[in-house]
Amino acid sequence: MNIIGDIFLVIGALFIAVGGLGLLRMPDVYNRIHAGTKAVTLGSLSVLLGIALLHPTWWPKLLVIAGFLLFTNPVAASIIARAAKISGIKPWRTEEQGGE
C-alpha cells in the first residue's frame, strides 16, 4: 500500500512540474492558463490520492479538499482568462495564422 501511495505522489508531482514548465514555456497568458490549470489540478488530485493511500483514515477530509480543488480551479482559470480578455490582451497566433 505504501509503495502505491508513493507512486501516486511521484506521478502527481511530475504533472505539477510539467504544469510549471508549461507556465514558463507558453507564449501568452491564455496558453499559460491551460498549462497552469489542467496539469496542476490533476497533479494535486494525484498527490491527494497518494496521501489517502498512505493514511487511509484521512480520506473524508482529503475528499473535501479534492472536490473543492476540482470545483474552484476551473472557475479561477476562467475568471482570469476573462479578465485578460477584458483588459485587451490579444491571443497569440502562429505566423501561418497571421500573427507575429
Binding site: V29, V40, A83
Partner: peptide, 10 residues
C-alpha cells in the same frame, strides 16, 4: 495572477 494561482494550488 495565473502564476500566483498556480503557486497557491501547489
Amino acid at each position: 495572477v495565473v502564476a500566483a494561482d498556480t503557486l497557491s494550488v501547489i
